[in-house]
Simulated scan of single mutants.
Amino acid sequence: MDERGLDHDGTIAREGALDRITAPFVPVVDAARTHIAETFGRGRLHSAYLYGSIPRGTATPGVSDLDLVLHDEPTRADRADAARIEAAIDQAFRQIDGVGILLSSRRVLLSDLERHDGGFFVACLCTPLLGPDLAERLPRYRPTSLLARETNGDLGRVLPRWRARAAAAVTDTDRRTLSRLVGRRTVRTGFTLVMPQWGGWTSDLNRSAELFGRHHPERAEQMRVAASAGRTPSPDPAVLGMLIDDLGPWLAAAYTAVHGEKAPRP
Rank of each mutant, 00 (worst) to 15 (best):
L147R: 00
W162R: 09
G153A: 00
E150F: 05
G153Q: 03
V158I: 15
R165A: 13
S145M: 00
P139Q: 13
D174A: 07
R137Y: 09
G153Y: 05
E150D: 09
P143D: 04
R137K: 10
T171A: 00
A168L: 01
R161H: 10
L159H: 08
A164Y: 13
A168T: 03
L159V: 11
Y141M: 11
A169R: 05
R140L: 07
V158R: 14
A167N: 13
A148S: 15
Y141K: 06
A168H: 08
T171E: 02
R142L: 08
A168P: 03
V170T: 13
R165D: 10
G156C: 11
A167D: 14
A164W: 14
A166T: 07
R161I: 03
R163N: 13
A169C: 02
R140P: 07
G153V: 02
N152L: 09
N152A: 12
P139I: 07
V158Y: 11
A167C: 05
L146G: 02
P143G: 03
L147H: 01
P160V: 03
L155Y: 02
E136L: 14
R176K: 05
A168E: 08
D174Q: 08
V158K: 14
G156A: 04
P139F: 10
L138H: 13
T173I: 12
E136G: 10
D172F: 00
R161M: 05
R176V: 03
S145D: 15
T144D: 04
P143F: 10
L155G: 01
